[in-house]
Structures are given as structure tokens and as C-alpha cells.
Design a protein around this nucleic acid. Structure first.
Length: 399
DNA sequence: CCAGATTTCCATAAAAACTAGA
DNA sequence: TCTAGTTTTTATGGAAATCTGG
């Protein structure tokens, strides 16, 4: 795992093993810092699964970068290993509900991860089946391959339909599964999420609830140190780790952000051919980090959403104030011209309105409906949350 | 046939401007 | 002059229809 071949060894003085700085990197047991209580809570809830019994369904709350996904993935892989010793087979599916935002897609994804076509002779086509057929196949796969299936639903609050929670959390009692059982781990950033749930779902999904608190400054520093093996000996200057930690602390102790910044700092040192990673690199890395999350979001968006955003960014730049609002019609007119530029046909206004509200949902823009009075009707003000220049860069980058 | 994307159609909200009544 | 009620307007957003790729 951690012995990737270093083909450019002599030239690459900065990184020894960059994988350690991948946020999704699963550290060894002793490398999850400051989450001991959370891990044992989770382990407790999952425990029955290792003996082939139905685990407790869990709902995990916490702000971004508090280790929710990491701990969930970690504890489930541990559970799989432990279960093997008891001759129990556990299957784990990790569904990112931000990507798989509908019930069907989520079930499809879970099925795909748990499946092994040669063994089960069940195929999970990318599309074309009814939702219920995806469910049927999922149940069959679980029944044939596993004793217990653990399904992690990351960012559950982003899913449009509550039905999947109902189906999964009650699969056993409703007799969909005969020889197996299912456990659900729901992860959400919103503490309020539970309130929006149907009573029946609440009672079955929320058997256990845990809140992950933000890391404090000391823990962030520890996390960074534990991952500094990613760098060669002595490459990190003394001030670097504290400086990164300080930046992350400003952001409610977001460990993901801290790790990203550290990685970018290394990359910047590398690009500039420096011997060491300096505090200066960290400051530049901070800026790059702010851009990168946005760029990632944008690059995953459909092309027309990018054009709408581009139109908004251009219009915002044209206007005087920094956060000048743009009306939907202004944006739509420019969007149409951008489509002509790309010689593709434009979407209709109604669809663009929906795209704008999707962008609002992703916290890329803010919307406010305004009324102008008699004879003037109403209009929507859309304003970019981030710097238009950054948006434009992100739009162009992902062509 | 299915889900998901897009289009078509249309009732509606809200507040300044206008009107009638006091 | 002040008040209460009515008019006017348009983008919005819900719902249904239609299209598309598999």
C-alpha cells in the first residue's frame, strides 16, 4: 500500500509518499487521531454484524473535515476483518449521495459495489431498470454473497428521496432478505437533518446517533505530523505545520482542509524547485485550496451549468460592486450568447432557472427574490459567493 | 419499459401605484 | 390628507408533457 514506486526519485526531493496526503487515504489504526471515542461508539453499534446479527443503524453528524467518512470506512473494514475470523461475511458499500443523488442511483451504486457478476450471475446495468428492480437485484446479491451488508450513505441529506432510507433500514423486517441482514450508516453535515425525516424512518434509521465535534488545534497539528511521513526527512520547515493548523483552525478545525493545504504547499515547493517547504508556500497553498474545492464542484457539473456560471461571473465582473447581483434574465441572455459562441443550442429559460437553484443548493451562488412593484413584477437576484475570477478559472480549466 | 433531463404551460405572489371613501 | 382596498405587472416555480439513452 504505502510503497509506491518512486520513478523520479532523485529529482523529487519533496514528497516521499504523497498518498498519505490524500484525504481519502485510510490510515492504519494508530493514525486516526483524536477520534477514539467516536470509533468505539461506532464499533459498538456495528458489533452485532461481526457475529452475523443485525447491526444498529447509525446516524453520524459533524461538520466537514471532522472524520465522519474516514471513521465510518475505517470501522467497517475492521468489522469485515473481524467477521472473517468468525466465519461471517460482511459486504460494505460506500455511497456518496452527492454524486448518486437519487434513490435509484444510490441503490444502483450499492448494488454495483456489492456485486460480483461471475459469482452471482446478476448484472447491474448502469441504467434502464426500474427502481424496484434495482432493489430486487440488490437484495438477491446480498442474500447470495453476504451474511451482513453495511451500507454507508455519505451526505444523506443531499439525497432527494427519503424512500431509500425506509427501504434499507427496514429491509429485514419487511422480509426482503431471507438469509442476510443490513445495517445503514448515514452521514450528514446538518445537525438538523433528523428533524426533516419521517417519523417511521427516524425510529429505524436513528437507533444510534453520534456527533463528531471539530478537531481542536492540537489534534490538527498531530494529524498533520502523523501524515508528514509523506515528505522526505527535513523537508518541512518548522513553522509549516503550525501555520497550516492555524489556517485550518480558522475554519472550525477542518482536517480535510488542513491536509489539502499541506499537500498543496508541498506541490508548490516542488513546482518552484525549492529544497524545503516554507511558510510562504503555505500561504499560497491556502489560496489554491480555496479554489480547488470550487473547481472540483464545477468540473463535476454538467456543461450547461458551467456556461450559466460563466455568464454570471462575466456579468458580475462588468458591474461595479464586488458582489453585484445578476438577474436571471441578464444571466440568461449572456448564457444564450455563450452557447452560440460554442455553437451548441441553449436550454430554455425554465431549465436555466432550475440550474440556478441547483447552483444555490451547492452553495456556489445565493438567490434572493425581489419585487419591483406595480407594473414591474418580480425578479430573482443571483450573486456569486466567490470571486468571479476564480469561477471563470474553474470553468475554463474543466473544458 | 425506465429514470432522468428538458420543455411546455400556467397559476401565483407581492408591493408600488392607483382609486375611492371618509 | 389619510386609509383601506384594488389594480397591475412579471419572473417564478409547480405540474404535466415530451424527449432521450439505455
Amino acid at each position: 500500500m504505502s510503497d509506491s514506486m518512486d520513478y523520479f526519485g532523485s529529482e523529487n526531493e519533496i514528497f516521499r509518499n504523497k498518498e498519505l496526503l490524500q484525504v481519502s487515504h485510510l490510515p492504519d489504526g494508530d493514525r486516526i487521531i483524536g477520534r477514539e471515542d467516536e470509533l468505539s461508539d461506532l464499533a459498538n453499534a456495528i458489533k452485532p454484524a461481526t457475529r452475523g446479527n443485525t447491526p444498529n443503524n447509525v446516524l453520524v453528524y459533524g461538520k466537514t473535515g471532522t472524520g465522519k467518512s474516514l471513521c465510518s470506512k475505517f470501522i467497517t473494514t475492521q468489522a469485515v476483518e473481524r467477521a472473517e475470523r468468525n466465519d461471517v461475511s460482511i459486504g460494505v458499500a460506500y455511497v456518496d449521495c452527492l454524486q448518486e443523488s437519487t434513490e435509484t442511483q444510490a441503490v444502483q451504486s450499492a448494488g454495483h459495489q456489492l456485486n460480483d457478476q461471475p459469482e452471482t450471475d446478476i448484472s447491474i446495468p448502469h441504467s434502464g431498470l426500474s427502481t424496484s428492480e434495482y432493489y430486487r437485484r440488490l437484495w438477491r446479491i446480498i442474500d447470495t454473497r453476504y451474511d451482513v451488508a453495511l451500507i454507508i450513505l455519505d451526505e444523506v441529506d443531499k439525497i432527494e428521496d427519503d424512500d431509500i432510507l425506509m427501504q434499507l433500514s427496514r429491509a429485514v423486517e419487511s422480509g426482503k432478505l431471507t438469509s442476510s441482514t443490513v445495517g445503514v450508516i448515514g452521514i450528514s453535515n446538518k445537525v438538523r437533518y433528523k428533524d426533516s425525516l419521517d417519523e417511521r424512518i427516524k425510529s429505524s434509521l436513528c437507533e444510534r446517533e453520534y456527533v463528531f465535534s471539530p478537531y481542536d488545534a492540537t489534534q490538527i497539528r498531530e494529524i498533520l505530523r502523523s501524515r508528514s511521513d509523506a515528505f522526505h526527512e527535513g523537508v518541512l520547515e518548522d513553522g509549516v505545520v503550525p501555520r497550516v493548523a492555524a489556517l485550518a483552525a480558522r475554519e472550525h478545525g477542518d482536517a480535510r482542509k488542513a491536509i489539502d493545504i499541506l499537500r498543496f504547499a508541498g506541490e508548490i515547493a516542488e513546482e518552484n524547485d525549492l529544497e524545503t517547504v516554507t511558510e510562504d508556500c503555505v500561504d499560497q497553498a491556502h489560496e489554491r485550496e480555496e479554489t480547488s474545492r470550487l473547481a472540483e464542484l464545477i468540473s463535476k457539473s454538467p456543461s450547461h451549468a458551467k456556461l450559466v456560471l460563466e455568464a454570471m461571473a462575466l456579468l458580475t465582473q462588468q458591474k461595479e460592486g464586488d458582489d453585484a447581483p445578476v438577474t436571471t434574465n441578464e444571466a440568461y441572455d449572456l448564457y444564450k450568447r455563450l452557447c452560440e459562441r460554442d455553437q451548441s443550442d441553449h436550454l430554455k429559460l425554465r431549465r436555466v432557472r432550475d440550474i440556478l437553484s441547483e447552483l444555490e443548493f451547492l452553495s456556489i451562488i445565493e438567490q434572493e427574490r425581489k419585487w419591483a412593484g406595480k407594473g414591474k413584477g418580480n425578479y430573482m437576484e443571483n450573486r456569486l459567493i466567490d470571486d468571479p475570477a476564480v469561477i471563470l478559472a474553474a470553468c475554463n480549466e474543466s473544458e
